[in-house]
Write a protein that binds this DNA or RNA. Structure first.
Lengths: 305, 305
DNA sequence: TATCAGTCTTTTATCGAAAAGAGACAACAA
DNA sequence: TTGTTGTCTCTTTTCGATAAAAGACTGATA
């Protein structure tokens, strides 16, 4: 009943691994591969069997050798490597954020079932998990209701974000000098500077950097609720910015500069400076999100003007 | 596949309703009953049919009349009126909080299935929903892991609680005079005073009052994330205090006094006073929770000393 | 003109099955 | 010892079926 997504993903990963090694080399033991590939040995063995069958590797279990590197066509297609649950997430976010859902609209689970081509249980499970993002609400024995990706949502999200991140940033400054967080911060600073230099070509890379930077700060809170909350922000930003490309380059450039200022304040360990930098960065992040909600909320009619 | 829990619950509720009315009275229309009983008309009709069959009511659909009041034995037993999902919650919380689960322990879904007598899906769904409480953590394609109801958990919970409630309490004071929240607050104040007078007998009633009081305050934030977060606190307190009865009377008496002080500060609309009262109350709430965790954390061996 | 009950359709809650994948154990080798 | 592979068992993921419950549509009634 389970599509072999883990197997296929692991298989592709193994091809990458083999390609990175010379032909003729011996392959690590199954146990070691388990570590490298982050899958169970059951799956690893299945992969090795398939590799033997395809004559990509040869030899007995005791000593397996790379015969050749795989052709790109031998990889499993990407869409077969993602679990149903992950597919549902992607489809649902698209349906939710791009479909112009209004507050009060009803989510018809069965309709999603048909639209997404997955079982009722998959939809049901996702809606349950998704409810923590505050965009839908359940009515027992009845359907889900959309709360809407509205201005209010963004404001509430940022109210909590600011509360949490200010606190985390201050906690960050009081970490001991030996904490690995400082090293990560310096590394991130470098990445920011190098991205800034090549901003014209690489501006898409910012969103990943942004995510890692804020996550590092929030982690300093050492509070599971604060850390978990960042998942909501991360998801919203991930999907929303994927579709709102207006002024992306300028926006990202400005954000990098703010980050650098923010990083400097953290390195100074001066709580007041940190608070200021944090607040001012989150303010512009809020503005960006709000403006893109307004764009989206326009009806086709209004957009023409 | 669905046990008739909604039907049975509605049936019991209808018996209550009929008992509150005189024999011989006409019964409201199906539509009106739908409102009163908070169930669909489909269910209401099923109930009415059953009532006819049992000769508790009589007449045609156009005019139905109460024939007699029901005997206590005619009610469906309580346990048949709760949905599987709700049963799972209760059983799981008991398993989790009383079973002395340690951080790092593994949750075996199948074992719970057997223990609780429900299907895998029911367990799965509950674990998913429960994960937002921060007590368990999922590892994809593998089992859930217990994070433990530990001192750290309580401290993290209270860190966020304090952040949220302080902000909500201050938001409370800036509500317009006409907001219904003020009326609710005054009503709660009265309830506190009357409970205080009868504290010797009615001290169990405090936990419900506590819940409503804090919920009222948190609602003033007008922020779904803050409001939703209170569900976590509410659940933890609900189950935990149900099992920790040590010094209940004194504890509750002290808490009522703190609440009254807190309410007074809210009525004064003085932010500084509010902040103080809020903080000091949450401090003692934290202490109470922490002390009961320590009691629970004792091994049987230690308890003997 | 709204509200009623009768009837029919659609959706949700719950279950159990089946396959993928994880993990445990034993026997062997280095 | 420590790590290896072969084998077996148990758990998780996903699906589809089915009964309960919700909801929509109808003509009748008042």
């Amino acid at each position: 009943m389970r599509g072999e997504t883990v197997f296929k993903r692991t298989f592709n990963k193994t091809l990458d691994y083999l390609t990175a090694n010379e032909i003729g080399n011996t392959i690590p033991s199954e146990n070691v591969l388990t570590e490298i590939l982050k899958a169970s040995r059951t799956t690893v063995r299945k992969v090795l069997e398939e590799l033997q069958a395809r004559k990509i590797i040869k030899g007995t279990a005791a000593k397996r050798v790379i015969v050749r590197h795989a052709k790109p066509t031998e990889y499993f297609p990407d869409n077969e490597t993602v679990a149903t649950s992950a597919q549902v997430e992607k489809k649902f976010m698209e349906w939710m954020l791009r479909g112009d859902r209004k507050a009060g609209d009803i989510v018809n689970g069965l309709e999603l079932t048909r639209q997404f081509g997955v079982s009722t249980s998959a939809i049901r499970e996702y809606l349950n998990r998704f409810s923590r993002f505050g965009l839908i609400e359940r009515r027992p024995n009845s359907s889900w209701i959309i709360r809407g990706f509205t201005k209010e949502f963004a404001l509430e999200l940022f109210e909590v974000r600011e509360l949490f991140e200010t606190r985390s940033a201050i906690a960050f400054t009081s970490q001991s000098e030996s904490s690995p967080a400082w090293q990560s911060l310096r590394k991130l600073e470098k990445e920011h500077r190098s991205l800034l230099k090549e901003i014209s070509n690489r501006y898409h890379d910012f969103s990943d950097l942004d995510d890692r930077f804020h996550r590092l700060i929030n982690n300093a809170s050492n509070n599971r609720f604060i850390v978990d909350f960042y998942d909501i922000i991360s998801l919203i930003f991930h999907y929303h910015y994927q579709w709102n490309k207006a002024n992306e380059k300028q926006r990202n450039r400005a954000a990098i500069l703010e980050h650098l200022d923010y990083i400097e304040s953290l390195l100074s360990r001066d709580p007041q400076r940190v608070q200021l930098a944090c607040k001012s960065h989150l303010n512009s992040a809020r503005k960006t999100l709000l403006s893109s909600i307004n764009v989206q909320a326009l009806t086709p009619d209004e957009e023409q003007r």
